[in-house]
């Protein structure tokens, strides 16, 4: 037991480091949970994955050399989510690449205003987007991340964050306008 000095190096932090982890990383649990919830589209799965990601962050905390703790944690959360999705929902990952299939003109501001004024409808529209569009929207609109942070978290070059957001927003508008007629006819 006492001779396993090397094995303890990874994963067990001394109390000072643990305190640092609790001050720097643990407060971002909400951000971790929120990103996981939107990537996995499930609160229950997000709880498991956020926990797993947090423990992973704890194990690798020695590798965190200061800087933006939230971005560092969210990067781990994102990777943990994709690993989880590949393992548990492989089909979902395959349908990620049909993004150019339905190119339609964007909706008018009026129809958009009506369609988006509904939490449930927005949630569903956001959930129909491919995960890599969903994640930039969640990071930007819900988490308030800068382009630099988004680039660090998602590993896309900073120069393409703007166009990724542009396409994601376009897709969200489409998803909202596609929903709208259905909803309207159901309500009649």
């Amino acid at each position: 037991m006492s001779s396993s000095g090397q094995g303890e190096g990874l994963g067990v932090l001394d109390s000072q480091e643990r305190e640092r982890f609790e001050q720097l990383v643990l407060p971002h649990l909400d951000a971790a949970f929120n990103l996981a919830r939107w990537l996995l589209r499930s609160r229950a799965d997000a709880e498991d994955v956020a926990q797993e990601a947090m423990l992973r962050a704890y194990r690798f905390f020695n590798g965190f050399h200061g800087g933006d703790a939230r971005a560092w944690l969210l990067q781990i959360v994102r990777n943990t989510c994709y690993t989880w999705l590949e393992k548990n929902r492989p089909l979902e990952m395959k349908t990620e690449f049909d993004e150019e299939l339905h190119v339609q003109p964007g909706p008018t501001p009026e129809s958009l205003a009506i369609a988006s004024d509904n939490r449930e409808r927005l949630t569903r529209a956001l959930e129909t987007l491919p995960a890599r569009f969903r994640e930039v929207l969640v990071l930007r609109e819900l988490e308030g991340c800068s382009y630099k942070e988004i680039a660090a978290i998602t590993a896309i070059p900073i120069g393409t964050v703007m166009s990724a957001l542009s396409r994601a927003r376009h897709r969200l508008q489409q998803a909202l306008s596609q929903r709208a007629p259905q909803e309207a006819s159901r309500e009649l």
């Binding site: 303890e8 994963g11 067990v12 932090l13 001394d14 109390s15 643990r18 982890f21 643990l26 649990l29 909400d30 971790a32 949970f33 929120n34 919830r37 939107w38 609160r43 997000a46 709880e47 956020a50 926990q51 947090m54 423990l55 704890y58 194990r59 958009l112 205003a113 988006s116 004024d117 509904n118 939490r119 927005l122 949630t123 956001l126 929207l137 609109e141 819900l142 988490e143 927003r169 969200l172 508008q173 909202l176």
Partner: peptide, 30 residues
């Protein structure tokens, strides 16, 4: 679109129990 996203309050915060669970499962001190 942005203000609709803000108004809809889509941000989901972690359940209190999850915070406790994580804290409890952090590996013990050296």
């Amino acid at each position: 679109l942005r203000s609709a996203l803000q108004r809809a309050q889509l941000y989901e915060t972690a359940p209190v129990a999850l915070r406790r669970k994580i804290r409890a499962s952090l590996p013990a001190l050296r």
